[in-house]
């Protein structure tokens, strides 16, 4: 059972206090978008063995959504950061790259 530190309230919460929200950094496609773009936004999800970026909500705590970078195979957590992020923080990306040299980036 995972523990993740909520970047908003600083609580190291266990999984039962959290709600998982799937892949992070999705771009929304609304009316006027192509079928391909909408399909990608609505249905296509990454399922990597390795580095992954996810949405989590501290639902039994401060109620805030945050993002987490972790390894889906080893469950190592590289870091958590606010949901109001267009992309993972640069220092977090550098940290992951150092630990997982073969990692190809978050996109």
């Amino acid at each position: 059972m995972l523990t993740l530190e909520c970047p908003y309230c600083g609580v190291k919460a266990e999984e039962t206090e959290l709600q998982a929200g799937g892949e992070a950094h999705l771009k929304r496609f609304g009316p006027g978008s192509s079928d391909e773009d909408f399909d990608g936004y609505m249905f296509s999800r990454k399922n990597p063995k390795g580095v992954h970026f996810e949405r989590w909500r501290h639902s039994y705590g401060c109620g805030k959504w945050f993002l987490a970078a972790r390894d889906t195979a080893t469950l190592e957590v590289f870091g958590t950061y606010p949901a109001q992020s267009k992309e993972p923080p640069a220092d977090l990306q550098a940290k992951i790259k150092a630990k997982r040299p073969k990692w190809e980036g978050y996109k």
């Binding site: 709600q19 929200g21 929304r28 909500r57 639902s59 109620g63 805030k64 959504w65 949901a83 109001q84």
Partner: peptide, 13 residues
């Protein structure tokens, strides 16, 4: 309520 907060926190912050 969670749905509202999700959109407010994660998309239209």
């Amino acid at each position: 309520h969670g749905w509202m907060e999700d959109w407010l926190q994660c998309e239209w912050w």
